[in-house]
Design a protein around this nucleic acid. Sequence first.
DNA 1: CTTTGCACCTGTTGGC
DNA 2: TGCCAACAGGTGCAAA
Length: 271
Amino acid sequence: MPELPEVETTRLGILPHIHYKNVSHVTIRQGKLRWPVPEDLSQTLSDLTVLNITRRAKYLLLHFSTGVLLIHLGMSGSLRFLTSFSPPKKHDHIDIQFTDGSALRYHDPRRFGSILWFAGAPEHHPLLQKLGPEPLENHFNTDYLYNKLKTQSRSIKLAIMDNSVVVGVGNIYANESLFRSKILPTRVANKVTKKECALLVQTIKMVLQQAIALGGSTLRDFVDSNGQAGYFQQTYKVYGRKNQTCFDCGHLIEEIKLGQRASFFCPICQK
DNA sequence: CTTTGCACCTGTTGGC
DNA sequence: TGCCAACAGGTGCAAA
């Protein structure tokens, strides 16, 4: 479920609720996530204060004085803040409880997410070390992307979804960004011109920023919600629109597989 | 080194 | 209506 905008919206949604709170206990009901949740996490976190929450790629980083908790939501993960205890439902795997009786609850049906402890600076964690630039930061720019792509023979869609090129561009936003940049997802990366790189960079930033802004304004809240922490259902220009008409030219949207992922495009608008 | 494809899970959807 | 295969917004890693 979560693409970068949802992760960022989650960060903004839970930060005010758990900032400077003290952990009293961690309850692990299901520790078999992508990697095992450390069994001694409760001992590790007890009595520590949440100093901050930051984000690197799609990892949320909960900062404590002795280290950092990495939380990844995978395909189906979500976090909710509980003001007081409520009985866990199916797939509510982890509670990080605070001394005031509130808690942060991790829910993840598919269990592709992860919760890892790292006693050090996050930039030194092996999973974060090889990551490319953040899409919304200045280091992700035309020259950087053009230079990165010029040696690559794979498709442009695979390239922009590769975390070592740029982080945070998932399947939806890869499809949407390429449509808005008028580039076919199958185009070989080193055939993307510098001008197109400029447009693509600008588009990726815009699409992600818009989605974050939209998430912030339409997401109900992360507090005690009864249903899922609901994400805004966007209307996409190509994603999921196979055989529907292109909004720009009226031609039918096509679907192919690239790297086992669904790829949607307009054969007229995109070259 | 680059590139491909698998693995990890459960819930939902679409075709028959 | 029911059943079952295919598929789902991620990503690290082994293998080619």
